[in-house]
Design a protein around this nucleic acid. Structure first.
Length: 372
DNA sequence: TACGCGTGGAC
DNA sequence: TGTCCAAGCGT
C-alpha cells in the first residue's frame, strides 16, 4: 500500500455522491431489491459485458420470473435461455441453487452474505453484491472493476490473482466500508465502484479528469495508471515476424532511423516490411523487379517482451539513384557501417553480407530456418 | 494455487 | 489479426 494520503473516511461517500450524479441508473436489474433478479444479473454478468447480458436477462426473466419457477424447471428447459452466453456451469449452478433455495429456504435468499456464499455458483463477491443491493448489507465486493479502482487509488502493486494481493485488496475494501459513515447507501456505493471502474477507471485510457477520487489517487498523482493493476506475466512471449530489405547501390546501404520511443529508437535499421508483397512494392517503386531480390537466412531476435523472426532479403543494383525515398531513410557507405549505431541483429545481417571489414561475402540463400 | 470455463468487444 | 480481457467461481 503506497498511497500515503488515502482519505478512507470520505472514500465511500465520495463514490456514493458520484454514483448518484454520474453513475448508471437504468440497467434492467437496477431499481429493484428483489434478490432473485439481482442474483440472476450478478451471475450473468460474471466475466460478461453488460451489453451482452441485457437481452439474455430479459428473456430469462419472462420464462422464469421467480425462484420457484426456476426450481421447478428441468435443466434442459433452462439451458436454451443461456445458450450463447458462455460459461455454462453458471446456468447449471443457477438451476441447482434455485432448487436448494426452494428446498431449504422457502424460495428466499438467506439473510447474510456468508450464508449466501455457500450456495452453488455464488462466491464471496457475488454474495456481497446480492446482500448489498437487496438488503443494504455493509459487505464489500471485489470484482475486476474494484480491483482496478483500488490498485490505482491505493497504489497496490502485484498480480491481483495472487493470494497475498487478493487478501490485501479484500482487507482494503473491508476497511473502506468500516471507515464509512453509518448512513452510507451501500447499494449506491457498490454500484458506484463498478460504475467508476467501467466508465472512468478503465484499463486502457482511464478518464481521470472525470474521476471523483483523483485528488488522492496514487496512480493519478504518480502517473502510473498504465502500470496498475499489475498485468499478469506472459507465459510465452508473443512472436512476430517481419521482412527486411538490404538494398545496395554504389557501395551504399539504405538504412532507416527508428523513432523514439519505440523498438530500437534512435538506432539505424533496415527498411522493414510485413510480408513479401510489401517488398515487391518497394522494389517496384524503385523501378526494380523484386525477382532480383534474394532471400537470406532468417534469424530470431529475442526481446525482453517478444520474439522477432526476421527474414532478410538482399538486392544489389548499382544503377539505382542514390536518393532517399523517405525522410528517415539514408544511404550509408558500407565502410561506415562499423561506426553506425546498429541493433545487434541488423549488424549480424550486414556483417554476414559484408563482413566486419566491409567485404562482401557469399550469400546464404534458401535457408528459411532461424539460425539464431 | 493455478487453471479451465465461452463469447464478444476493444485496440 | 491477434491478443487481452470482461460484474468470478469451482476444482
Amino acid at each position: 500500500m503506497l498511497n500515503q494520503t488515502p482519505d478512507l473516511p470520505s472514500l465511500a461517500s465520495t463514490v456514493v455522491d458520484w454514483q448518484k450524479q454520474h453513475g448508471r441508473h437504468h440497467l434492467p436489474w437496477q431499481g429493484t431489491q428483489d434478490p432473485y433478479r439481482i442474483w440472476l444479473s450478478e451471475i450473468m454478468l460474471q466475466q460478461t459485458q453488460v451489453a451482452t447480458v441485457i437481452g439474455y436477462y430479459e428473456r430469462f426473466l419472462v420464462r422464469f420470473p421467480d425462484i420457484g419457477s426456476l426450481a421447478q424447471a428441468r435443466q434442459e428447459d433452462v439451458m436454451p435461455y443461456w445458450a450463447g452466453l458462455g460459461y455454462y456451469a453458471r446456468a447449471r449452478n443457477l438451476h441447482r441453487c434455485a432448487q436448494e433455495l426452494a428446498a431449504n429456504w422457502d424460495c428466499h435468499f438467506p439473510p447474510t452474505p456468508e450464508q449466501i456464499a455457500m450456495l452453488p455458483g455464488i462466491g464471496r463477491s457475488t454474495a456481497a453484491a446480492i446482500a448489498a443491493f437487496a438488503y443494504g448489507t455493509r459487505s464489500p465486493i471485489m470484482d475486476g472493476n474494484v480491483k482496478r479502482v483500488f490498485t490505482r487509488y491505493f497504489g497496490i502493486y502485484g498480480v491481483t490473482s495472487q493470494r497475498a494481493i487478493e487478501n490485501l485488496l479484500w482487507a482494503t475494501a473491508q476497511g473502506a466500508v468500516e471507515a464509512a459513515p453509518v448512513e452510507l447507501d451501500m447499494a449506491a456505493y457498490t454500484q458506484g465502484l463498478m460504475d467508476l471502474g467501467s466508465q472512468c477507471c478503465v484499463r486502457g485510457r482511464p478518464d481521470c479528469a472525470r474521476c471523483p477520487l483523483k485528488a488522492r489517487c496514487y496512480a493519478y498523482e504518480h502517473g502510473v495508471q498504465q502500470e496498475l493493476p499489475t498485468p499478469k506475466p506472459r507465459k510465452t512471449s508473443p512472436e512476430r515476424e517481419c521482412k527486411m530489405l538490404v538494398l545496395r547501390s554504389q557501395g551504399k546501404i539504405l538504412l532507416e532511423q527508428q523513432v523514439s520511443p519505440g523498438i530500437w529508437g534512435g538506432l539505424w535499421s533496415l527498411p522493414q516490411y510485413g510480408d513479401t508483397s510489401e517488398i515487391e512494392a518497394a522494389c517496384n517503386h524503385l523501378g526494380q523487379s523484386s525477382t532480383a531480390a534474394r532471400r537470406m537466412a532468417g534469424l530470431l531476435h529475442v526481446f525482453s517482451h517478444f520474439k522477432l523472426h526476421i527474414e532478410p532479403w538482399y538486392l544489389r543494383n548499382d544503377t539505382l539513384q542514390v536518393a532517399e525515398t523517405s525522410p528517415r531513410q539514408s544511404w550509408i557507405a558500407i565502410e561506415d557501417l562499423a561506426s553506425t549505431a546498429l541493433p545487434a541483429p541488423i549488424r549480424k545481417i550486414l556483417d554476414g553480407l559484408f563482413g566486419p571489414y566491409g567485404r562482401e561475402l557469399p550469400l546464404v540463400t534458401d535457408a528459411p530456418a532461424d539460425t539464431g
